[in-house]
Amino acid sequence: MSLDALDRATMIDVQHVDFFYGTRQALADVSAEITEHRITALIGPSGCGKSTFLRCLNRMNDTIPGARLQGQVLLDGQSIYTPHTDVVSLRRRVGMVFQRPNPFPQSVFDNVAFGPRVVGTDRNIDLSQVVEASLKAVDLWDEVKDNLRQDALRLSLGQQQRLCIARVLAVKPQVILMDEPCSALDPISTLKIEELMRMLEREYTIVIVTHNMQQAARVSDYTGFFWLDAQRSGVLVEFDDTAAIFTRPQDARTEDYITGRFG
């Protein structure tokens, strides 16, 4: 795959972000450019701020008392941390898939239709069409089309996670954040999600946090490596083409981590 970043626009521009949980600094001076229609993987050991970073991109950290961010995060050139930022519409543009499959305890149909229903701007949208398109996009349609009224929790875990992705797609976001989306899944389901990511890349920008280095190497175009600095804050040690990170890392810590010497 040719990776010519020059002809791709930057979807999210993160500039010198410091992030605090109360007095504890979780991220120190993190800068990164997330390229549109590409998959960016974030790797690193547990507790080094990967998920915190991810949640800065759709402001999900806002719900945590005492959480504070300094620096700039630009989505499509617009800062998302201004006093007039509409957080609700931001999250419609930047969707999120979580670690554990977490469908609502409702029917398959209602799960996918949830987003369009709460957005509710266009009363004329054909919900069943949106649901069908979203389920087809995650390759789940053939498995559930005969019984869209069944309880989503009756699906297998892998199907549930694809359903959660479909639920995000139904909102029609520009960016999809994935926080270790395969960590609860078996290898076959994992593979399925990875294939899916490659399909979705054409229409969406994807950022994925993963503990699994092979997954990052397999699926992503860009990779960022997080590490804890001396003050135990998360820093982005290296950010580059995935091929470059895994074949000729610039930083000794990156090399040690990907070759399994620690972490």
Binding site: M60, T63, R91, R92, G95, F98, V118, V119, V168
Partner: peptide, 13 residues
């Protein structure tokens, strides 16, 4: 709590 978080992440109030 997860359900509330997911709702927010989908752009629900």
């Amino acid at each position: 709590t997860e359900f509330r978080t997911v709702n927010l992440s989908l752009g629900g109030s």
